[in-house]
C-alpha cells in the first residue's frame, strides 16, 4: 500500500485522539484513571533470579519528575493493587495477591482465592488471613522484606518503560513519516511508584498447556493486575 494513504489514516485518527493516545505501556491509558493514584502504568511478570520463583511488578503514578515530585509521591491508602492469577485458562482469577498501603508500610495478602471472581471480579474485599508487609522505601532507605519465601518491595523506582513517544505522536499527527534511529526515550529520567512481589512458584497449582500456540506444551498462567478503589 502507499504510505501516504497509511499516514493519512493514522493522522486522521491521531489528531482526534492525540490528547489521550499512547503515552506508555499503560500510562494514562483512559480518561477516568488518567493521572489518578489508581492509574497503572505497567505490569511485568517473569521468572526470578531464583528460577523457582515468579516476580510480579506493578507500577503506578507514572511520569514523576526526579527530586521533589518523586520524593513527595505516595501510595494511596484507598487503592488496592491486585495481581490476578488464572491457572486453568477460563480467564477467571483463581488466586490473587493483594497489596495496599497502611501507615508507613505496604501490606500484602495471598496468594489466596478471591472473595469475588469471574463476572464479579471487578469487586474485591481484602483477605486478611495471610498478612505480610514491607516498610515503604524512600530514595535513600531501600527496604526489602523476606517472609515465608516471598520478597516484597514498595517505593519509588526509575520507570522501566522505554519508548519514543514524542516521535510516535509526530507520526500519528502526520508531522513525521517514520520513527528515528536512534530514537529518543521519552521516559528517560522519570520515575514511578513500584510494587514488587517475588514468590515461590510452588505457591501456585500447575498451569495449563495448549494456551499459547507458540509454546503449546508449556503450562501457562493467565496473569493481570487491577487497581481498585475503596467505596
Amino acid at each position: 500500500m502507499k504510505k501516504s494513504k497509511l499516514f493519512a489514516v493514522i493522522g486522521g485518527i491521531g489528531l482526534a485522539v492525540l490528547s489521550i493516545f499512547l503515552i506508555s505501556a499503560d500510562h494514562i491509558d483512559a480518561p477516568a484513571v488518567q493521572g489518578t493514584t489508581a492509574d497503572i502504568t505497567d505490569f511485568y511478570a517473569f521468572q526470578g533470579q531464583n528460577t523457582s520463583n515468579f516476580v510480579f511488578i506493578a507500577n503506578v503514578q507514572g511520569l514523576l519528575s526526579p527530586g521533589q515530585p518523586t520524593d513527595e509521591a505516595v501510595f494511596d491508602e484507598t487503592v488496592l493493587l491486585e495481581f490476578n492469577i488464572d491457572y486453568n485458562n477460563d480467564l477467571n482469577e483463581d488466586l490473587v495477591i493483594q497489596a495496599i498501603k497502611r501507615g508507613d508500610s505496604m501490606y500484602f495478602f495471598g496468594p489466596t482465592a478471591p472473595a469475588f471472581s469471574g463476572e464479579e471480579g471487578t469487586k474485591s474485599t481484602i483477605a486478611t488471613s495471610t498478612r505480610r508487609s514491607v516498610k515503604i522505601s524512600t530514595r535513600d532507605d531501600v527496604q526489602i522484606a523476606e517472609q515465608d519465601g516471598m520478597k516484597f518491595f514498595a517505593g519509588p523506582r526509575e520507570d522501566p518503560f522505554f519508548f519514543d513517544f514524542n516521535q510516535y505522536n509526530a507520526v500519528l499527527s502526520g508531522t513525521a513519516s517514520s520513527f528515528n534511529n536512534p530514537g529518543m526515550d521519552t521516559f528517560a529520567g522519570t520515575n514511578v511508584l513500584s510494587v514488587v512481589v517475588e514468590f515461590p512458584k510452588s505457591m501456585l497449582p500447575g498451569g495449563t498447556t495448549g494456551v499459547n500456540q507458540f509454546a503449546p506444551s508449556t503450562p501457562m498462567y493467565n496473569v493481570w493486575v487491577e487497581a481498585k478503589r475503596k467505596q
Binding site: 493516545f21 499512547l22 503515552i23 506508555s24 505501556a25 499503560d26 500510562h27 491509558d29 483512559a30 477516568a32 484513571v33 489518578t36 489508581a38 492509574d39 497503572i40 505497567d42 505490569f43 487503592v79 488496592l80 495496599i100 497502611r102 501507615g103 501490606y107 495478602f109 471480579g121 471487578t122 469487586k123 474485591s124 474485599t125 481484602i126 486478611t128 493467565n222 496473569v223 493481570w224 493486575v225 487491577e226 487497581a227 481498585k228 478503589r229 475503596k230 467505596q231
Partner: peptide, 21 residues
C-alpha cells in the same frame, strides 16, 4: 489497621499497551 470494605475496579492491565493502542 483497617482492611475492611469493598474495592471497585478502576484500571486493569495484562499485556502492554493494549488499551492505549
Amino acid at each position: 489497621l483497617d482492611f475492611s470494605g469493598t474495592y471497585i475496579q478502576e484500571d486493569q492491565m495484562g499485556r502492554p499497551g493494549i488499551n492505549t493502542v
